[in-house]
Amino acid sequence: MRHVTLLDIFTHPIAKKYLTRSGVAHAVSVAYHAFRLSTQYNVNPDLATKAALLHDIGHYEWYTDGQWDYEKYKKNDIHAIKGAERAHKLLIRLGEEPQAAKEIALAILLHTDSYLPEGTIHQRPLQKVVKLADEADEEPGGKHHYRQMDYALAVKKIEELDQNVERILGSEQFKQLG
């Protein structure tokens, strides 16, 4: 049973504020990629799509002389840390099951290694799915954060994705995995 839907998250004022900052079109696209990848990696699509939708909710705006400074962002940003905390708090407020909120937050924390010291970390399947989904939508110079999507279309796509997640969660294939 889902305690919180993607639409619940997407329409919450906190999510609206920060998803607008990091790019609604990117967030929706990454959620769709995560849904697709969740079946490949035998990952719960509910957790994957929520983590993917919120993966950049911790973005800070890095500007120099009024212009977005991608190099400054790459050098100084720790959005995954802030995003994990912000997403966890939002999910708990919305009534998400605490363990699910924690797993989603950890996937957000580990969706990028740009702020980590040299070396690799072992990612669990959910964390890998969110990272791969984000990478599937990236464009050079961070341009994926600036693609536009009409809010009404975004809501429609989120509703469709919620229906797809419900369909998979109710399928016999998923019940056998769970």
Results as ranks from 00 to 15, higher is better:
E96N: 10
H88E: 13
A52I: 07
D77I: 04
P45M: 14
R93Y: 13
N76C: 10
Y41K: 14
E71H: 15
V43A: 05
L94I: 08
Y60N: 11
I92M: 14
L54I: 01
E61Y: 11
G58V: 02
L53I: 09
P45A: 13
E71G: 11
L90R: 07
A84N: 00
W68V: 09
I57Y: 05
A87Q: 08
G83R: 00
V43W: 06
N76G: 12
P98M: 03
Q40A: 13
D46R: 10
L54N: 00
L94V: 03
L53D: 02
L47S: 13
E71K: 13
T64M: 08
E61C: 01
D46W: 13
A84W: 00
G66N: 10
G58A: 07
H59L: 01
K75C: 06
P45Y: 02
G83E: 03
E96V: 03
K72A: 15
K75M: 09
Y41A: 08
K50V: 05
D65K: 14
N44G: 03
N42K: 15
A84P: 01
E71W: 12
G58W: 05
Y63I: 02
G66M: 00
Q40P: 00
D56P: 00
Y41I: 02
L53K: 05
E97M: 02
G58R: 09
H79V: 01
Y63S: 11
D77C: 14
I92S: 04
A51S: 10
L54H: 06
H55S: 01
L54K: 04
G58E: 01
T64K: 14
K89I: 05
D69G: 06
P98W: 11
H79G: 00
H59T: 02
Y70H: 13
Y70A: 12
D56A: 13
A84T: 07
L47N: 07
K74M: 09
R86F: 11
N44H: 03
A52H: 03
L47R: 12
A87T: 07
E71M: 10
P45E: 02
P98V: 07
K50W: 07
A87H: 00
K75I: 04
L94R: 03
L94S: 05
E61H: 13
N76W: 08
L53G: 04
Y41S: 07
Y63L: 15
E71R: 12
N42A: 15
I57M: 14
E96T: 08
D77A: 15
A87P: 00
Y63T: 15
Y70F: 15
K75A: 13
Y73I: 04
D56L: 04
D69W: 08
R86N: 11
D56H: 09
P45I: 06
E71L: 15
